[in-house]
Design a protein around this nucleic acid. Structure first.
Lengths: 359, 359
DNA sequence: CTCATTAATGCTCAAAAAGAGCAAAATGAA
DNA sequence: TTCATTTTGCTCTTTTTGAGCATTAATGAG
């Protein structure tokens, strides 16, 4: 516990000191803006990636990103939008700031003497306005657009988050045994205080013995990173897991801390969709209720009762029928709906209130 | 809409370029860390402030804050904790990052040629461990502790957020007429696109004709700022409201963008308390259920049905009785409870689920 | 053209949660 | 003792969920 300092020692108004330029070298940082731009195409949640060069001539997936330049950009979000429209043929609609990361060693290479980079992540949502793309047939096909950016499935980067066909087998095959092993090595000599023991953190993040919480995407990623099971951890010079190299790779890795930003984005979207009408940012102007449901399920996992979903959405006043119908659904034609923008004005502005807890 | 650029023009890997130091002057920024540290004392929600000097020899209220120095601070939150323990005699417990602000002109003085400052706001919660402080008698008395920091009521800074004694009269006396006037002046020549008209934004933020949404603290503050009704807006050189100087001051102003950060903090806390067990960060180890209710009400506004609140909290398993009772309640003695830490391990980790929407 | 198949849609019913209020229990004060 | 006051236990009603059956309106095969 610190002793109280005298007023003139605390310098709480230090920032206003006009002659602080001499401190620039210690406190100046560079800011990186990165966008996780999400869409749902053919019931597959996808994110926009660009290719970035690695030092050794290869390339990695990266999020559209670039440095914030206070001279050119009036606001952070403005800067982000500029970078995105430069790097991908896309103008951002909905965008929200996620988090600012600054952990040393997770952005710039630690060997590098370049200025420290602080990384601000954004979540953006967009509609699948594309030429229908003939639908990402099945699994890993991802198309490249004119500007060299790709839409890739979220789950390429986070296979353990994909519960659409039940619990991914990667848990029992890799994650659980390796994490258990890491939890065993709990007693690191000289480590700082651990408020929660490793085993407990694992239980909470992965819902062992409890329920899977689809929102804890970042917790899970961070745990895997700390346990050295994530390629980025090795790249950042962290203690590698036992038997590195013999381990199957846990998802596709990304540049810098971009996979961490994407994890944050997925978690945030999964949470927000439940209490704010953000799904509609992902939908075309007209859609059937089942298409809406499929989009929600692409994000949260497929758990919804069709009739109740419809009742919920309609009774919340989120949509209104356009009068048209969509034929060739394989059965009875479906009524088309559109988003009732007015709900944004109504107070709670509800989302798709999927019972938080068990779905 | 931008034309797609060729790969070599986009430079998506620009950040990894090893020789980017020449760009430092355009993209280096300084990062300010600020903490809104909240507590509830004698049923009054309070925030920790320090005094900061203004240019003209006066002083302003400020949040504990300081620059982030990548050399000294391993993480952002670490830096924040250092600054707080320097400036106030307090070690932070719970802390979460809120938002990163960078709008030009809202931190450093626009005339100043000092480096641009980006401001990262945090919300921290703490218990009223103090010497009982004899209870903030009534209204505006605020005590100063050893390190020169004060606990002041939230509502000193945001009087319009205080609905504990009904709708504040400041609405009809000042806010509504002035905002209406500002909405009239809607058609600013040469302005950029306004996605939502002023009147509509006012309706949404202040719930005119709808319901007051206690979480939209930041929206309301920003609107009042834009309308020039907030002292900081004038200080930042913005177009002042008509009749400035004749207007009563809308709350106590703060240094830089600290009032904006505080608004963000209040909004976030009001939201989070409903779905995560964060109230307990504000409570002493033992408390009665009514004390718990009073604390929630201090934050959200007084709306809770006593018996149902008790049923909710108990049935959610948030607390367990200690076995002791508190006498001198003025009536029947109240059982003392403590927080059941185990709920943090249980999946939804519920908050005080006050019906979102109408309270 | 008829029938089987497939989805969309309409409705019912039971269980759980939320909103309100009555009344007994346990104190201190008059 | 009696009264005022606050905690606490319970009941009752209304809403909201969770689940499933039945009907409707297309399509395609024979």
């Amino acid at each position: 516990m610190n002793k109280p300092l005298r007023r003139d020692e605390t310098e709480p108004m230090r920032l206003s000191h006009p002659d602080r330029r001499h401190r620039l070298d210690t406190s100046a940082v560079e800011i990186g803006l990165s966008a996780a731009i999400a869409a749902v195409r053919s019931d597959e949640p996808v994110v926009l990636t660009v290719k970035a060069a690695t030092g050794d001539g290869g390339s990695v997936d990266a999020l559209p990103s670039g440095p914030f330049s206070p001279r050119e950009h009036r606001t952070l979000e403005g800067g982000l939008r500029d970078w995105v429209s430069d790097q991908a043929d896309l103008t951002l609609g909905y965008a929200e700031q996620l988090y600012t990361f600054a952990d040393r060693g997770r952005h710039a290479n630690p060997m590098d003497d370049s200025p420290h980079t602080v990384s601000i992540g954004y979540l953006a949502l967009t509609r699948p306005s594309w030429p229908a793309t003939s639908g990402l047939n099945g699994n890993h096909d991802h198309s490249t657009d004119a500007a060299g950016s790709n839409w890739r499935s979220w789950y390429d980067f986070f296979p353990w988050e994909d519960w659409r066909r039940g619990r991914p087998e990667i848990f029992s095959r890799v994650i659980e045994p390796r994490l258990a092993e890491w939890a065993e090595r709990n007693e690191v000599p000289g480590s700082r205080s651990r408020p929660v023991a490793r085993a407990e953190r694992i239980r909470m993040a992965f819902g062992i013995g409890g329920t899977w919480d689809e929102e804890r995407v970042l917790d899970r990623y961070e745990l895997l990173y700390e346990a050295g099971l994530i390629e980025e951890a090795r790249r950042d010079g962290r203690e590698a897991a036992l038997l590195w190299g013999q381990l199957p790779k846990l998802g596709v890795s990304m540049q810098y801390d971009h996979r961490r930003i994407l994890a944050t984005a997925i978690g945030r979207l999964r949470g927000k969709i439940k209490y704010r009408p953000v799904v509609f940012e992902l939908m075309p102007d007209e859609f059937t209720l089942f298409e809406l449901q499929k989009t929600v399920e692409a994000i949260l996992g497929p758990h919804l009762h069709k009739q109740n979903f419809r009742r919920l959405v309609e009774s919340a006043g989120l949509v209104e029928p356009t009068g048209d119908v969509r034929a060739k659904t394989g059965g009875r034609p479906a009524k088309l709906f559109k988003f009732r923008r007015e709900v944004l004005m109504e107070r709670p502005a509800p989302g798709v209130r999927v019972k938080a807890g068990r779905m």
